[in-house]
Design a protein around this nucleic acid. Sequence first.
DNA 1: AGGGAGATTTTCT
DNA 2: GAAAATCTCCCTA
Length: 183
Amino acid sequence: MVARDLLGCILVRRDGTHVLSGRIVEVEAYTQNDPASHSFRGRTPRNDVMFQAGGVLYVYFTYGMHFCANVVTGPEGRGEAVLLRAVEPVEGIDVMRTRRNRLDTELANGPAKLCQAFDLGRAQNGLSLVGPEIQILPGRRILSKDILRTPRIGVTAGQEKLWRFVLEEKTPRRHRGNATENE
DNA sequence: AGGGAGATTTTCT
DNA sequence: GAAAATCTCCCTA
């Protein structure tokens, strides 16, 4: 599964003025035969990008006020993607502070927060992840024992699938959701 | 520190 | 017309 491989990778965002980056620490997988997925009921104008060949960014608008970003992972026509739920800010933290106006632990620890910090919106839907604006680079090697699997957040269907992956290293970082906190 | 409710609009039934 | 891959504020302990 591609979702696990994205954990620990570095999300890089260039907007002409700044370079932002963050280490991916939480993701969720969505496939076409999955009732919780936008692609479950077929291709529509909204989820069209999700059905494109992998390597592009699928950004959708939800709850009337938020954006969420996915990495499209399937071949053309299959409707597979991995939702980027949280990153640990690495570069451009000052810019993220300005955009988020929150504590440092709250800069990008949720899918919509991440989009606000990295300025991902409609304009970035369908962008190539190999292009200059957005890239995903390999990060430091991670251990599979540090990966926690849980049900996905905010979905009503498909709760039995443990398709949320959280990178839980000894680094004391706060995350949303029901991850086990040993502290 | 943790839980509950409101915000707000696109999308599909 | 209802639900939505969520966040923030405000309340209580």
